[in-house]
Design a protein around this nucleic acid. Structure first.
Length: 1107
RNA sequence: GGGCCGAUAGCUCAGUUAGGUUGAGCGCUCGGCUGAUAACCGGGAGGUCCACGGUUCAAAUCCGUGUCGGCCCA
């Protein structure tokens, strides 16, 4: 993505409330939404309930026109032309579409926040055979004749209303996914404006001389009676005949042997192809005493003769393939098909580069059917005979088979060949065979007249234009896409159907067949000008039923429209200008074209990515999109493809019902959008909900204090407050996260951006910062420390929800409203994307805290080993730092570590020093000691085990052994040095960036002071739990009664009663007769025995508090 | 049959650009915390990095072959 203009970048998030251009200023809205009163710091629900949040936020959006305002807010800024790839309007949104639209929404929201005026018109692909077949099914039609009987016009109406119906469903689906696009004004490929865009594009292509009519071998669906595109062919395994046929040679003895799975193409046989470089053999084969000569490729001989059931054979001669060229043969069905292909060059052997050496190495070729056969036949100037009609029925040309459906004639053809002694072998084969993607009918290859855009003529230009686009990932462009473009044939754009954009070609009576003689119409206006009938270009519909009536008379000749409609891929191919209403509206096209960005799945490489390149290049000489984000496919949890027809799918609505839209979106967006497929996972969606809940809890915590304390974020920014180390740290982290997220977004890696954000919320804000500020916000009295914490939290939260907005727009906006009330924008989606502020970025501090956290982790591990809970202070913590970075960080952040680990003192040991209280011992390795010392080894081992030395060296151990045993010479291999800590001390190593950085020792020795503090905290914790049981407000005062069944402990508690009173907001500690009583058990730390503790609390009536 | 992509802990994914002791979250398990609490924290177990072969001192990573899955093509 390119950078937005400076003027936009400079609008930092902190200044946005004073942005004079905000809609809020221009459109003072009367906001009074009963269901969503957004007064600042109002408490939020106890638990994050996605459904409630989404319902309320959607209502709120409607009430304040949030989408419209957000769009208007960027009106006139730097334009960003995003183009929506139109989903096809048959059926509802599946997980793949959901992922696709969610990605689009995420990037559009991000781009808007980054300051762009983004085009966001959604589109729908509404023409084409799939809809026709669905409508045919609905109406119970069998074939085209039913449609003709029903009436073209009525049928087109039915298709239109079916498509509109489906469109409505999709619109609802997409909105329920929280996608913000211009749902009021989608582009529809069936509208006259849009159809005109296709006409216009086609006319441009024609003017470049790239339109022609011609014969081609095409895939035909005999039921739909139309050509279908290669990518509309679905392959399925079917059983077909597998026959070896002898073609009798005319000028020499014997027969060529060919193999085919389509006996019905033999009537059209025109030549036999061989591999010029292969070796063929003449074989004398014998069966039942009769011999015959067969010609086959050498490596195929044995298998074919075996299949033919011959008793024996001899190879009598060898030929290069080249030598066979020119041999002539009799048509194998010469009696049954008298009018078979014939002529000077027909019924001969030719070389062909499509010949594969399998089966027989000789290929039966019928230019009237197969694509390769057709092309080779054209080269050779052979006649093209196709004795099959568009409905798959043999024509008169097929002789005795005329009137039969081709597949039905297979049996008879094989029988006839057999009778003539020309069937060498007959069997069946299971193989992939093409079927119509809509009606599942087996396709046939036939040659018919079709209209083409001759993209093969501009292949170099296509490949050059590809270079003008950036793909994410780029490898998809350079491998997959280029390969496809290199091998793409001319584009057959004609379909013999009804529901499509009519091809705007009018041909005269007695037309010669050349394009020069035809008329191509580009616009509605031109149509109105030239046709004989009076039509209004503003209102005319362009569908087949209308335009087929229109004639053109020029220079005394009358022209009628050809009957065909466009391949539906033409429709979406013109989307970049169709979506702008071009050519009808010129201004937007001039300003915006080509598209800045398109986002689609990798199946579109051969679909929309290609069709747009082809059409854009042929019509306008350029690629119509500059950036492509190509994502993967949505798969089932087990990695299988989803399939609607097999009912193997995850319905997005089911996911929303179960977990909510925001968690689903977060899940979808947490995957890379760069080509990899996504496996759906229910668990991960639930996990996303849990993570969003953590953010929810952070808000709950913050609002609980900011509200009652009347904190005013508009008067205190962090820069004005007395911020402390953790405040500065979390603000620095925020800047880092913002910088990283922007970087990832620019690289179209929203998944990584999202990771950074969630990690920040969970690890830094929730687990560290909130824990750290709790003590600061608890006291009721105002303090600079508390204010700084609020100001920090406010900034962090406000920017965090902005960062979250593209991912989970509902919860982000809901939290934003709770935070800003009526002081902010009406929606978080109007905010500027938070940019990092250098003033808060402090890398040293961030690195320090990383070390602090590593020390803390090791410290809490050491505490756990010593079984001393965090509630209990420890006398001291010794950090033996092993790196200079650790020394510096621990030294600088002593207080923080003290606080986090509840220690009274932090002692720092530098790498050059040794902690004097440590001792070292050795574990002997007997596998080394044994061979070295023999009998003595056991005694040396004992001496080593008893040793306790002050330095971790072999020399020190030698000395120790010498004192207990006798001097010996030890090596490093003989011993492993182990550390012995003083009594009451446990240690755990810590590391940073994978490097061991030191050891944290915790001294758990008890002192009277520690006992006072520890027992007091045991009491406060339990009292506070009881306050929670009673659901008391934070400010509620209580009376407290403490009874403990141990005089020593009672004494410790008494000595800290002041602390307890403050921590639990108790007015008095004494006898409470009538309160909430609870029995507890605490542990006497000295004797490790349980002690009964009874606590009673009673809320006191609030006096008119002065606080 | 061909092209492209993927395969790493029970699950979802990092790590592959540039070879150097495989990581995270979830789940499981043990423990802790308890004024955000249906939240949160710490410890632990858990791996043939799909298989085989090659290059290399050294391969999850590079090369080759194969298997499985996905997309596209025939």
């Amino acid at each position: 993505m390119s950078s937005p203009p400076e003027s936009i970048r400079r609008l930092g998030s902190r200044s946005k409330r004073h942005d004079s251009r905000s809609c809020q200023t221009e459109l003072p809205l009367m906001i009074a939404v009963d269901s969503f009163p957004m007064s600042r710091f109002e408490e939020i629900d106890d638990r994050y309930d996605p459904h409630a949040v989404e319902r309320e936020t959607a209502e709120y959006w409607d009430a304040v026109d949030a989408y419209e305002q957000t769009k208007a807010h960027r009106d006139g800024e730097q334009p960003y032309f995003f183009v929506d790839g139109p989903p096809y309007t048959s059926g509802s949104a599946h997980m793949g579409t959901t992922w696709n639209k969610t990605l689009k929404d995420c990037y559009i929201r991000y781009l808007r926040m980054s300051g762009y005026d983004v085009t966001d018109r959604p589109g729908y692909d509404m023409h084409g055979l799939p809809i026709e077949t669905r409508v045919e099914e609905r109406l119970g039609f069998e074939n085209k004749k039913d449609i003709e009987a029903f009436g073209e016009q009525r049928f087109i109406e039915e298709c239109k209303s079916f498509a509109e119906e489906q469109l409505d469903g999709l619109q609802e689906d997409f909105q329920s996914f929280g996608v913000w696009m211009d749902w009021e004004d989608p582009y529809k490929t069936v509208s006259p404006e849009y159809m005109e865009a296709a006409w216009w594009g086609f006319e441009q292509v024609h003017e470049r001389g790239l339109v022609e009519q011609g014969q081609r071998s095409i895939s035909q669906c005999p039921r739909c009676e139309t050509a279908i595109a290669n990518n509309e062919v679905e392959y399925e395994v079917v059983d077909d005949p597998s026959i070896y046929v002898k073609f009798p040679l005319t000028e020499r003895k014997g027969s060529l042997v060919i193999w085919t799975t389509t006996p019905w193409t033999i009537p059209a046989n025109t030549f036999v192809a061989v591999d010029g470089d292969a070796t063929y053999q003449a074989v004398q084969a014998e069966t039942d005493g009769e011999t015959e000569t067969l010609y086959l490729e050498a490596s195929c001989v044995e298998e074919v003769l075996d299949r033919g059931g011959y008793d024996r054979y001899d190879v009598i001669e060898s030929f290069d393939g080249e030598e066979l060229a020119g041999w002539t043969y009799d048509h194998p069905l010469d009696e049954q098909v008298p009018n078979h292909p014939d002529g000077e060059n027909a019924l001969q052997v030719y070389t062909g580069d499509y010949v594969e050496i399998d089966r027989t190495g000789l290929v039966h070729s019928a230019p009237g059917h197969g694509e390769e056969d057709f092309e080779r036949g054209q080269e050779l100037g052979l006649p093209v005979v196709c004795p099959v009609g568009p409905d798959g029925v043999f024509t008169e040309r097929a002789g005795k088979y005329a009137g039969q459906f081709v597949k039905d004639a297979d049996t008879e053809i094989m029988a006839d060949l057999d009778r003539a002694g020309r069937l060498l072998s007959e069997g069946t084969v299971s193989h992939d065979y093409g079927h119509c993607w809509r009606c599942d009918t087996g396709i046939i290859q036939i040659v018919t007249d079709q209209w083409f855009i001759t993209v093969s003529e501009i292949k170099d230009e296509l490949l050059e234009n590809i270079e003008d686009s950036e793909w994410y990932p780029q490898s998809a462009r350079d491998n997959r896409f280029k390969d496809f473009v290199k091998s793409s044939p001319d584009w057959n754009v004609s379909r013999q159907r009804y529901w499509g954009i009519p091809i705007p070609i009018w041909t005269p009576e007695e037309w010669s067949g050349t394009i020069d003689e035809a008329i191509v119409i580009g616009t509605r206006e031109e149509l109105a000008d030239r046709v004989d009938q009076a039509i209004d270009p503003e209102t005319v519909d362009l569908h087949k039923d209308t335009v087929d009536e229109l004639t053109i008379t020029e220079d005394g000749r009358t022209y009628t429209r050809i009957g065909d409609v466009f391949d539906v891929w033409i429709d979406s191919a013109v989307a970049t200008w169709g979506t702008l209403g071009y050519p009808h509206n010129e201004a937007a096209f001039e300003e915006l074209w080509p598209a800045d960005l398109i986002i689609e799945g990798h199946d579109q490489t051969r679909g929309w990515f290609w069709s747009q390149l082809g059409m854009g290049t042929a019509a306008l000489g350029g690629i119509p999109y500059e950036q492509v984000l190509m994502h993967g496919y949505a798969l089932m949890p087990d990695g299988q493809a989803m399939s609607k027809s097999k009912n193997i799918l995850i319905d997005p609505h089911e996911v929303i019902d179960e977990h909510g839209t925001d968690p689903m979106r977060a899940f979808l967006l947490s995957f890379t959008a760069r080509a990899d497929d996504m496996k759906f996972s229910w668990d991960e969606v639930a996990e996303m909900k849990r993570r969003l809940n953590i953010l929810w809890n952070v808000f709950r915590f913050s609002l609980q204090y900011m509200g009652p304390d009347d904190f005013d974020p508009d008067t205190v920014a962090p820069a004005d407050a007395q911020t402390e180390v953790v405040d500065e740290w979390v603000l620095s982290r925020l800047q880092t996260v913002e910088a990283e997220m922007s970087e990832h977004f620019e690289a179209f890696e929203q998944d990584k951006a999202f990771d950074r954000l969630i990690e920040f919320v969970v690890e830094d804000v929730s687990r560290f910062y909130v824990q750290e500020v709790r003590d600061r916000v608890w006291p009721e009295a105002d303090s600079p420390s508390k204010t700084a914490a609020y100001a920090t939290l406010y900034t962090v939260l406000e920017e965090t929800v902005a960062l979250l907005a593209p991912f989970s727009p509902f919860i982000a906006d809901s939290l934003y409203q709770h935070l800003t009330g009526d002081t902010g924008y009406d929606t978080v989606h109007m905010c500027d994307w938070p940019e990092q502020a250098d003033q808060w970025r402090d890398r040293t501090l961030e690195a320090d805290i990383e070390i602090v956290r590593a020390v803390e982790e090791a410290g809490s591990n050491a505490r756990q080993k010593a079984e001393r809970s965090l509630r209990w202070p420890v006398e001291r913590i010794v950090v033996a730092a092993e790196t200079e970075a650790a020394v510096a960080a621990v030294d600088r952040r002593r207080d923080l570590i003290k606080n986090r680990l509840n220690a009274q003192e932090i002692q720092l040991i530098e790498p050059s020093e040794q902690w004097g209280e440590l001792r070292y011992a050795a574990a002997a390795d007997m596998s080394v000691l044994g061979p070295t010392f023999g009998d003595d080894a056991g005694r040396i081992m004992n001496a080593l085990n008893d040793a306790s030395v002050s330095e971790p060296t072999v020399e020190a151990l030698e000395t120790a052994v010498a004192e207990r045993h006798e001097p010996v010479s030890l090596t490093d291999e003989m011993v492993e040095i182990v550390t012995k800590t003083p009594d009451g001390v446990t240690g755990t190593a810590f590391d940073t960036d994978g490097e061991q950085s030191g050891v944290v020792y915790v001294d758990t020795s008890l002192t009277p002071e520690i006992r006072n503090e520890g027992y007091a905290r045991e009491v406060t914790r339990r009292v506070n739990e009881m306050r929670s049981d009673l659901e008391l407000d934070n400010s509620q005062r209580i009376k407290l009664d403490i009874t403990v069944d141990d005089d020593g402990i009672a004494q410790h508690i008494t000595e800290r009663s002041e602390l307890i009173r403050n921590e639990v907001r108790a007015e008095t500690i004494g006898t409470v007769e009538d309160g909430y009583r609870k029995e507890w058990e605490i542990t006497n730390v000295d004797s490790d025995t349980p002690v009964a503790l009874t606590l009673t609390i009673e809320p006191v009536a609030p006096q008119k508090a002065s606080t």
